[in-house]
Amino acid sequence: MSFTRTMVQDLRVRLAGADPLPPPPPVPEIPLPPARVFPSPKRRSPFAAAAARHTTALVGIGHVGTRYATDVVLQFQAELAVAHGAVHTELPEDWAEKNGLLPLQSRVREHREFLLRPDLGRRLDEPSVARLRERGRKGVDIQPILADGLSAVACMGAGRELLDSFVKSCEARGFSVGTPVCARFARVWLEDEIGEVVGAKVAAILLGERPGLGTGDGLSAYLVYDPKVGRTDGNRNMMSNIHARGVPPEQAGKRLAALAGAMLTQRTSGVPLDLAPLRGELGDAVGGGYRAPDPRVRLVSVGEPK
């Protein structure tokens, strides 16, 4: 017997007697089939159905132990994947020109830098400044800007429709409109430099908003009067939630033109801008009024659509 074994045996005798250690617990018998099945409820619980009239929060979803049922997990993962997919999609370099827009780019060179350096996303790179000086219409009332922001998917989706509706509505109101541009790797404040370069009275940037769970297609718009580098958020007015289930792009474009009109009339924007005269035209954009929640879309089904 080795020294170690002898020592351990001595210790056991001294501490607890020499009885053999209990055997490991036996593997239990296989449970008689059928093992329990947790069926997905065919219909929502009355609580979930009632809640759905007031909120898109996922409530009344039940549980397995303390965790989610499998269909809840898959729905969640699909929604998360949609959001991540939207963030990580880049606007193709030739997208602007293919869509007849003047292409601009911020000082950001690649996507990771875009996420980590908001300061670079707020300034134009030198070729863009030159291009804008050479080809952009100067001294206009409104400078429209389409941009990727945090969702190129949203920009490529309803971006054109929103831009066209906004430009058309501005022209219908008799405003002079600048050369429509499209900016890559753009943050909101990039509108300040673009507006300043062309000497516009109002700059309007329409860009993809930070995706939420299951939604990568929302656009936001930020408008600023007398755009100049150094303007802050207090100088801007914004409208969010522009997508088919929120404020539809066609309608949003009209409201944004009304907002721009108020800026031109009052010669200011942001906190000092009085929105009261616009309440009728802006609708939900300045709050107020009950709107039933957008239904949460079920994303996953097995098999192919018929």
């Binding site: 609580f47 007031h54 909120t55 898109t56 929060a57 409530v59 303390t66 009950y290 929640p293």
Partner: peptide, 22 residues
């Protein structure tokens, strides 16, 4: 944290009741 995008208090209360039951 039963937040709601438009402060629909009924919606807030549905989330609150669900959470309390966990």
């Amino acid at each position: 944290q039963p937040n709601h995008p438009t402060d629909d208090v009924d919606g807030i209360l549905y989330s609150a009741r669900e959470g309390l039951s966990y």
